[in-house]
Amino acid sequence: MTSRRVFLLHGLVGALPALLHAGPAAGQQQPLAGQGEAGELRDPAAAGRPRDRATQRDNDEYINQIEHRLQCTCGCTLDIYTCRTTDFTCTFSPALHKEVLALRDEGKDADAIIAAFVAKYGEKVLMAPKPEGFNIAGYVVPGIAILLVGSVMAVLMVRRSRLTAATAAAAPLGGEGTVPGASADEMERLRRELREFDE
């Protein structure tokens, strides 16, 4: 077994040329071929569940987007992509990922893959219900409720502001911008106070 120090050295030595040649063209996101020697871990079980090598398909945006729409069946409530790339102990999400890949290999598009999952696991596998039938209520009720309450509020506000304006016009005041019995100084002070209050 090679020591940790040797591996760190190998890693750093391996990193140098990589850094010197760093900078693949902007936008490229590709793992490069291995350059170093991979040693064995002292306690592999402590490093979590053994992992398969990631492939280009694991980073396929089309596949990932499909998996974002499907829930993992382990009970975590996360989508397949998030679950398989999060706690790394779930045994369900990697299997579901493979199912998605297999369906894609059969030539199915996103909708067909999702339909296949719904057929197999039920509607619960969808991260959000399809907007059809009763589910439409799920999407539109909050908006309708807000619009409805907002409309009632608007009608009441218009009605009350008109009422206030009418009452104010009919109020027996001492004149525009005055209060009965108030001196000019007091009026100015009141205006100043109100302005301060308004601001």
Binding site: G11, L32, G34, A54
Partner: peptide, 10 residues
């Protein structure tokens, strides 16, 4: 990405 010591990814 799967990387061996020394491997680089961007």
């Amino acid at each position: 990405a799967t990387l061996r010591p020394g491997d680089t990814v961007s």
